[in-house]
């Protein structure tokens, strides 16, 4: 029985440098660093780190990737997954509280909204990295870089299929809006090609 697996993670290590980069700030100005610290103190314990995923076999012909349960037509994705006979499809989110904070500070202190936005971007990225690292460690395989809808020629429309397969609303509370945006907003869906040890 192939099933969707859910994982909960503890907080992955935080990169302040990355947060600053996402905030569009190339200086370690002390006032800005203080805002970042304040935001981190406030939000850290409210974030949840959840991933749900499925592992599937994969056949590629031309621009078509056949994941057994559904197919995509996107040359760039096919190129990314070339050489893989299996792939992981996953969805990850850090939960709704970051969105509430961004909204809250959007009304009362946009500088903090910007910082929360940057923290959210760094956190979801860190979660995705952590998940992929774990898969590598546990199974001894190598992984291709993540590939998400909206990259290259893989249309955002692919989200519909991904959500249909993973049902992330049920597993990790991640939903898809009519405009194909995800809620909570600090979330990622992606394909990851699995390269067996010996293969290139």
């Amino acid at each position: 029985m192939t099933m969707i697996i859910t994982r909960n993670y503890p907080e992955p290590p935080i990169s302040q440098k990355e947060i600053l980069r996402y905030a569009g700030c190339q200086t370690e100005d002390s006032a800005i660093m203080e805002i970042m610290q304040e935001c981190l103190r406030e939000i850290s314990e409210k974030l949840t780190y959840k991933v749900c995923y499925i592992e599937t076999t994969l056949t590629i012909s031309a621009d078509c990737c056949d994941f057994v349960f559904f197919k995509t037509h996107a040359a760039k994705l096919a190129e990314n997954l070339s050489g893989c006979e299996k792939a992981i499809l996953f969805a990850a989110t850090i939960g709704t509280e970051i969105d509430r904070s961004i909204t809250r500070y959007g009304h009362i202190a946009p500088s903090k909204a910007l910082m929360m936005q940057a923290i959210g971007a760094e956190r979801i990225e860190a979660l995705c990295n952590r998940f992929c690292e774990d898969i590598k460690k546990e199974t001894g395989v190598r992984l291709k870089p993540r590939f998400s809808p909206g990259y290259g020629d893989l249309p955002l429309d692919a989200q519909k299929d991904i959500f249909n397969i993973l049902d992330p609303a049920k597993h990790i509370g991640l939903t898809l809006n009519d405009s194909l945006l995800m809620s909570p907003s600090k979330s990622v869906t992606a394909f990851v090609g699995i390269l067996d040890n010996i293969e290139q």
Binding site: A23, C25, Q26, I35, P110, S111, L114
Partner: peptide
């Protein structure tokens, strides 16, 4: 930078 512009605003 943007965060600084915002704190001033």
């Amino acid at each position: 930078y943007l965060p600084q512009l915002l704190t001033s605003a």
